[in-house]
Amino acid sequence: MAKNIYIGEISKNKEIQEDCFLMKVKVAASFETPLPGQFVMIRIAGLNDPFLSRPISIYSFSRRNNFCLIELLYRVVGKGTQIMAGLIEGSQVEINGPLGNGFEIDSVGKNVVFIAGGIGIAPMSLLIENLSRRFPSSLMTLYFGAQRETAVVGLDKPQKLCHDVNVCTDDGSLGEKNLVTQAFQKDMKKFLPANTSIYACGPRGMLLSLAKILNKGTFNCQVSLEERMACGTGACMGCAVAVKDKKNTLAYQRVCADGPVFNLRDIIWE
């Protein structure tokens, strides 16, 4: 009997890029400090349409005198996020979290490579923030891809904390005209598998192409997945992902409770 549903008060909700919003939510000080990669289930207090809560990964988190501030960076993709985008300062939301498992952090002294696509930068930014307390920026490299300049978000902190930030866009309107995974592949020989941890979050296509690139090597890569969810707590079994289990056979695991962070090598792509 430890977990509560928190009533959050929106202190800011602003479109910072095309269809991308930054929402700041004040919650009670008892809110558990989230690990990078964890998420919250958010819903508009008292509203049953849209019916389900929305899983949104945590972009930033800070403790103030008598409250906590959760920052969510989200893209408007459907009905739920559309309604979220319309919420004004002072509106109340219900927050369940932090949920899921965060990224496993490897030992200090390794190279860390972050690969993010679009709004997938959100959990990466929190991870970079967190790791920057232990890793020198010289060890941290980010590859970030977006469709076009107007879709580039969330680079404020990474640009300060990583010594090398590679930005790609599909149309070349900002940075290199390339796919983020190809930009990484081009640099791959700079990193030694035994001495490098890779963290990635982005659209399915990006993660699949990363899986192909890393397939033959021995790089360790953790990825954060996204899936439609009903409960966010492991009960509904709705957010299944196909993985190889310990016996190397197909199993469906829950993105919410078994993830959202998985070892890229374990994911079965159909």
Partner: peptide
């Protein structure tokens, strides 16, 4: 039981559809 392959759920007006398949 393995259950059904995803996607398994979809929100609808005032509810949701599920096809978890008794995993």
């Amino acid at each position: 039981r393995l259950g059904n392959p995803p996607p398994r759920i979809m929100e609808t007006t005032g509810g949701m559809l599920n096809a978890v398949g008794l995993q």
